[in-house]
Design a protein around this nucleic acid. Structure first.
Length: 417
RNA sequence: GGAGAGGUGGCAGAGCGGUCGAUUGCGGCGGUCUUGAAAACCGUUAGGCCCGCAAGGGUCUCGGGGGUUCGAAUCCCUCCCUCUCCGCCA
């Protein structure tokens, strides 16, 4: 979330930033509640100071054996007042928090202000973008024919858009997990983690999925736990409510997890085969960095994600997202899209963002700077490195042979043999 | 799931209604001593919020929330978590 004090001092800038994200917030109400709350706090703290002095006095009188009954009677009304004002402050705080939690992060200055996807810019393209060729079959056709994937079985067992991988398809999934995690640990310097796939409400709130996206997630009612939409959630929350040492930064984690998305209301849009599914696998990169290194670390993160696509010999392009297409918590975001030559579409397989201190503030993740010895919020970043279902889709379509078989990039061969 | 014991500062561990934000030890930081280091000694070492340009002052926090009281780390209720034993189980 944004800092209330900072909002107060920079309302116009926040107002513009929020609008650029396509969200509408009534800041007059917020600032009014804030002013009321602070005035009530001043009021109640004065009373508390008075009560504390009286309590000291009572304590002394008791110790010297004098009955402090008069003083107790006097201070009773003060205590009653304190209770009432405290309740009022509590109510105001709840209202303020409710608003604060719905305010999105504002885009970084280097991000184009634009509606929807109109501000997205291709910053570079890599590899050969194959044009349409009559013999090309799409991934679903190939994988189904080879017995690698059954969307029908997934539907029977669970429901629509739950892929069931079989035989070599299952093997491929497992190989990709190992390849990507190895690559990021050995070559890109990340520390491997394997997080839980279920998280509690506090974690979902910490990274910003809640309260806004509750409808997009699978939830276990009985335990009030959520199936993670991305490993970003458990991995970022690893450091929730902690203060790390300055010299430990940057902290880099890589973790595999299954990802679960209800994708409510998205039926009929790009849903063929593996292009949009409710459960998929993903290797996620998460970084905690010092604020001054945030943008530079984002570029490195994008590079780390790209290195996977290059190793897999997949043609891709990098998009810098405009304000209207960015996620709620993101401050600056690059998407990586891979070309699928049969489907003739770009598929997003990675989204790399810096969140500034937005998540760190919500999740209370700080570091202590040596010079000042004061705790400061870290900046959090994450990116897919990369997301599977679509990467598999692109892999199959790019590496298919005219005979209806599939070759694989040589980097995967050790994992597939 | 059942029974019991606990959750206190970076860690360990006291306190169990009244100057307790908290004794003490370890660790960390600064200093004295030393050619340097160790040891020893001295000092220092939580965070949030409010007011303030600042210095500083006030207030809150002993797992979370609520209650009793003039006053709660201490008493009561509730939830969460950890440990031990039993049950169940991959």
């Amino acid at each position: 979330m944004l800092d209330l004090k900072w909002i107060r001092e920079n309302v116009d800038r926040v107002r513009e930033g929020v609008k650029a994200k396509g969200v509408s917030i009534d800041f007059e109400i917020l600032l009014d509640l804030d002013a009321k709350r602070r005035s009530r706090i001043r009021e109640v703290e004065e009373l508390k100071a008075k009560r504390n002095l009286a309590n000291d006095e009572i304590s002394k009188l008791k110790q010297s054996g004098k009955p402090p009954t008069d003083l107790i009677d006097q201070i009773k009304t003060t205590s009653q007042n304190i209770k009432e004002i405290d309740a009022d402050v509590g109510g105001l705080t709840d209202k303020i928090d409710q608003i604060l939690y719905t305010i999105p992060n504002i885009p970084h200055d280097s991000v184009a202000i634009a509606k929807g996807t109109s501000g997205n810019k291709v910053v570079r393209t890599w590899g050969e973008v194959k044009s349409h060729n009559p013999y090309l079959k799409d991934h679903l056709e190939i994988m189904t024919a080879l017995g690698w994937l059954s969307m029908d079985k997934g539907s029977k067992i669970t429901g629509t858009a739950f892929p069931f991988y079989q035989g070599f398809g299952a093997r491929l999934e497992r190989a990709l997990i190992n390849f990507m995690v190895d690559f990021h640990t050995k070559r890109n310097g990340y520390t491997e983690v394997w997080p839980p796939a279920l998280v509690n409400r506090a974690s979902m709130t910490g990274t910003g999925q809640l309260p806004k996206l509750e409808e997009d997630m699978y939830r276990l009612e009985k335990d009030d736990l959520f199936l993670i939409p991305t490993a970003e959630v458990p991995i970022t929350n690893l450091l929730r409510d902690e203060i790390v040492k300055e010299e430990d930064l940057p902290i880099r984690y890589v973790g595999y997890s299954p990802c679960f998305r209800r994708e409510a209301g998205s039926y009929g849009k790009d849903t063929r085969g593996l292009s949009r599914v409710h459960q998929f696998d993903k290797v996620e990169l998460v970084k905690f960095v010092k604020p001054e290194n945030s943008l530079e670390e984002l570029e490195l993160l994008v590079g780390n994600a790209e290195s996977i696509l290059q190793a897999l010999e997949l043609p891709y392009r990098v998009l810098l997202l405009g304000s209207g297409d960015m996620s709620f918590a993101s401050s600056k975001c690059y998407d990586l899209e891979v070309w699928a030559p049969a489907t003739q579409k770009w598929f997003e397989v990675s989204s790399c963002s810096t969140f500034g201190d937005f998540q760190a503030r919500r999740a209370n993740i700080r570091f202590r700077r040596k010079e000042t010895n004061k705790p400061e919020y870290v900046h959090t970043l994450n990116g897919s490195g990369v997301a599977f279902a679509r990467a598999v889709l692109c892999l199959i379509e790019n590496f298919q042979t005219p005979e209806g078989k599939v070759n694989f990039p040589k980097v995967l061969l050790p994992y597939l043999s």
